[in-house]
Computed example of a mutant assay.
Amino acid sequence: MTPAPEKKPDRRPPYQHAADELRREIKQGRFKPGEQMPSVRELQDRFGVANMTARSALNVLRDEGLIYTIHGRGSFVADISDGASEFSAEYTAPAWYLAKKSDGEQEQGGGEGEPDDTAAGSSLAELLTGLRDEIRELSAEHQELRREVEALKKAQQSQS
């Protein structure tokens, strides 16, 4: 009999292993949209990695649009059920939008009155990013309020 072939060592960095495991759990539904992810400290303990390694794993998931972070509160699972977790950073606004200038805006074009597609597209992308972040913060606050309401209902039921 021939011995079983040796398994090749996985040479990916530890943060990739952690990100892969968390990604799998999110896609399997262990973490629901709006639910808070484990803290960096909990991830350190779970995966046996350093603080920066755990943060890097979360950064990978954030870059993929699977989670979002609210400063001082933590990381939360994004709602990816619509199939589009992030808009493209290379997004260019449609021609009708670029042609339409509000009265207070200065022409950003490169001469001859033509609009600068990249400047308008990036400003729109910045606006969309800001709106997306606001929606995510509101969603996290909504989830927190729902939990508080449930706790109050349970307390009221136990008093009755």
Results as ranks from 00 to 15, higher is better:
38 P>T: 05
144 E>A: 15
90 E>R: 08
7 K>M: 03
109 G>Q: 08
127 L>H: 10
32 K>N: 02
149 V>Q: 12
112 E>C: 09
10 D>W: 01
103 D>C: 03
125 A>W: 00
105 E>I: 01
50 A>Y: 04
40 V>F: 03
113 G>V: 02
102 S>D: 14
79 D>L: 04
8 K>D: 09
26 I>T: 05
32 K>Q: 13
109 G>E: 06
106 Q>S: 10
84 A>I: 09
150 E>N: 13
84 A>S: 11
58 L>H: 08
134 E>H: 07
110 G>Q: 07
29 G>C: 11
30 R>V: 14
115 P>S: 08
136 R>H: 14
9 P>S: 08
22 L>W: 04
48 G>E: 14
21 E>Y: 03
16 Q>L: 13
62 R>Y: 01
2 T>K: 11
157 Q>W: 00
27 K>E: 12
155 A>N: 11
28 Q>H: 06
64 E>R: 14
73 R>V: 02
68 Y>W: 06
4 A>Q: 10
113 G>E: 05
75 S>V: 01
56 S>T: 01
131 L>A: 10
20 D>H: 04
49 V>T: 12
54 A>T: 03
7 K>I: 08
119 A>H: 08
148 E>G: 00
44 Q>T: 07
58 L>R: 11
147 R>Y: 01
74 G>N: 07
35 E>G: 13
146 R>M: 13
16 Q>F: 08
152 L>I: 04
147 R>D: 12
148 E>T: 06
40 V>K: 08
85 S>R: 10
32 K>L: 11
5 P>Y: 05
12 R>L: 14
131 L>Y: 04
64 E>L: 12
150 E>C: 05
143 Q>A: 15
41 R>Y: 07
106 Q>D: 11
128 L>P: 00
11 R>S: 09
105 E>H: 06
147 R>I: 01
9 P>M: 03
14 P>G: 04
50 A>L: 14
58 L>M: 15
65 G>P: 06
119 A>V: 13
2 T>Q: 09
34 G>N: 07
80 I>V: 13
155 A>R: 12
49 V>M: 11
99 A>N: 12
26 I>S: 13
139 S>K: 08
49 V>G: 07
102 S>W: 04
43 L>A: 11
17 H>G: 04
158 S>N: 09
67 I>C: 05
82 D>G: 15
12 R>F: 08
137 E>M: 06
91 Y>M: 14
43 L>R: 02
93 A>Y: 02
38 P>S: 12
3 P>R: 15
117 D>Y: 09
65 G>I: 08
124 L>D: 05
38 P>K: 11
107 E>H: 10
8 K>T: 02
